[in-house]
């Protein structure tokens, strides 16, 4: 039990996927201008990340490993994630139109979100069990959503501030992200 709590705290705060591992930066910078869209993106990533980790973990342990095809990992995983996103989009549109309304626009962006592929590869590298992988994926997604949400809040305020011209847009956003990362460094050293 303690092991799982440790994984969760580490993935959300100590080793935050955005601020410490530098994964998923593109959506972090791209979809963080508004708080509402940040919430949607965070939820969509969480959804895809957990399902993708489940599918890729099963593929790795029951297809790639038994046949000694570990070298096909990258190609299989990215195709699975791309297909999964497509399928999810279709299912969502049919079954839960309301949810699709909320998350639909973010789904195509997730295929090239390196956090999803990154987590799928990391759980294989770390040799996690299936349950542990799923917990790790969910916690990582929570960390991503937290980062996105905090950052969107800051950027909404940033809109109202008079920033020197060359710093406007991405540069000042990156510097704010740096300060946030510094705050997250305060969590380092926490361990169980």
């Amino acid at each position: 039990m303690l092991e799982y709590i440790s994984i969760i705290i580490t993935a959300i705060f100590v080793n935050n996927i955005v601020f410490a591992q530098f994964l998923g930066i593109c959506p972090f910078l791209g979809v963080s201008k508004k708080l509402s869209s940040a919430t949607g993106m965070g939820a969509a990533v969480a959804f895809v990340m957990v399902i993708a980790t489940l599918v890729t973990w099963l593929l790795q342990h029951f297809l790639l490993d038994p046949f000694g095809m570990g070298y096909m990992q990258t190609i299989v995983f990215i195709l699975v994630i791309a297909a999964l996103v497509q399928v999810l989009e279709i299912i969502m549109k049919k079954v839960t139109p309301a949810l699709y309304q909320a998350l639909g626009v973010f789904l195509p962006l997730i295929t090239t979100n390196c956090a999803v592929l990154g987590v799928a590869i990391l759980v294989v590298q770390k040799d996690f069990s299936l349950l542990m992988s799923l917990v790790y994926a969910a916690a990582t997604a929570a960390g991503f959503a937290l980062a996105l949400w905090l950052f969107a809040g800051i950027r909404e305020q940033l809109e109202l501030v008079d920033v020197p011209r060359p710093m406007r847009g991405a540069p000042i956003a990156l510097i704010c992200a740096g300060l946030l990362a510094m705050a997250f460094m305060g969590f380092s050293g926490i361990s169980f």
Binding site: A20, F22, M167, I172, L174, I175, A177, M182
Partner: peptide
């Protein structure tokens, strides 16, 4: 040391980008 650690990555890139833009 902060510049080698994670926050430094964001901050230095932000500043370089501003210089490039300028």
């Amino acid at each position: 040391l902060i510049f080698v650690l994670a926050p430094g990555a964001f901050i230095v890139l932000g500043l370089l980008m501003a210089v490039f833009k300028h």
